[in-house]
Amino acid sequence: MPVYVDISRCIGCRSCEVACKRVHGGKGHVNVHMAGDRASVPIFCHHCEEATCTMACFSGALYKDGERTAFAVEKCTGCGLCRLACPFGVVWTDKLAHKCDLCQGRETPTCVVTCPANALSTDFEAASKRARTRAALVAAYGGRV
């Protein structure tokens, strides 16, 4: 159950960034990027179906667990290959590797709960339906009531 971003809702408040770092003992896995003065987006692990980080990991520390790209810290040797194998730059090696774990042990990932603007969600269907409805309303009313 990866986390989806609705970029039209992101307000660049960096809440996910701060919260992620806090719950992971000072090692955050989200970076909020500003696109000039017009938009922002949090960049974090996509939990790719064909996860290149798991392909590069020789020790089996990174592996697919259903939709989730999971990480078993006890198998990690800190070689750093996963960091280089991630096309999005969202696996870090800091002696050992660390990446988004979808907040294992919590009901919902912290970034999703804390997001003030509801930009992050774990329910892709609901989020995309919401975005489609909104776009249709804008098209119908043209930004007018």
């Binding site: 970029i7 696109a35 017009r38 938009a39 987006v41 999005f88 730059g89 870090w92």
Partner: peptide, 17 residues
């Protein structure tokens, strides 16, 4: 990796911007 994140952010926000 830093530039990879930037590229991804630019790609993701392009339409919005």
């Amino acid at each position: 990796p830093v530039c990879r994140r930037k590229i991804e952010a630019e790609r993701a926000t392009k339409q919005m911007v």
